[in-house]
Design a protein around this nucleic acid. Structure first.
Lengths: 139, 139
DNA sequence: AATATATCCTATTGACACAGTAGGAATATA
DNA sequence: TATATTCCTACTGTGTCAATAGGATATATT
């Protein structure tokens, strides 16, 4: 799979949070129940989203999670990139990649770069707001 | 990584074969040497390409591998899809996926579908000929 | 102060793919 | 028959995924 369950779940959580954005912090349990996802697994996903400042959290009683920005300012790209392990086109384009001596004459590297741009653009154009509103495929 | 080493190597093999297309079957050892890839690993990749009828093979002495069609008739999509394990956008879109009861009201499924179309189109537009000729990013 | 409700943190598990390796069987040519 | 090649099966170590478990920490209410 290009996007794993992690990324899928993360997107569902974000939309769920967007749909309950005005109600203050939403507890994990509520999201898990509504979405039918294991609490403990969701926890790990939410941690990644919090670490990436996409979601903010409030501890203790009456605590929970909420979007850190307006849903119209949050893109699918940010969400997916935050939870998917190494969401780069190929290793050559990963930040930690050791320099390849074939890079200069590599006939395919430009294609990989272009591809990555296409992917970024695609997901970057979808906001959580769009998805929560059911707007797709017209973008 | 969106595309693993397998996919990257497969693409390099295809371009290598395109560049030696007129010389008859190219032995594995030659490709491995030129590309600096382990013979045994390449073997597995070539098997997948042969199984998918992208490459044809001749056994025995003076045997080797060659493109099964003209490089202008072979796309990057075919190659990547042949070697990457489950190259679908998300599990929901995989052929073996069990039917999801949320499918009807799923707010994100259309986006995944659209994404997969974009990926297919992108790689489908690049032919092995293009890449062997060094044509990229102008497509 | 006690309690209930939350998030936070660390560790573990089983399954599986990736990347690579090894050895030999089958096949075709000279 | 000797040689060069693909084909086939199996194995190994590393890492991620998907999920689970148990407790530590924080906070609002009573």
């Amino acid at each position: 799979m290009i996007v794993s369950t992690k990324g899928r779940y993360a997107m569902r959580v974000m939309i769920d949070l967007a749909q309950h954005n005005s109600e203050g912090p939403v507890p994990l349990k509520q999201i898990a129940d509504r979405q039918g996802i294991s609490e403990k697994y969701l926890e790990a996903i939410l941690r990644a989203l919090v670490e990436n400042k996409i979601v903010s959290s409030v501890r203790g009683r009456d605590g929970g999670y909420s979007l850190s920005r307006d849903p119209s300012e949050l893109t699918a790209w940010e969400v997916i990139f935050a939870v998917e392990k190494d969401f780069y086109a190929v290793t050559c384009l990963s930040p930690g990649a050791d320099t390849c001596k074939r890079e200069k004459e590599c006939a395919i590297l430009p294609m990989w770069k272009e591809f990555y741009g296409v992917v970024q653009d695609f997901f970057g154009k979808y906001t959580i707001q769009d998805l929560a509103d059911g707007i797709t495929a017209t973008i």
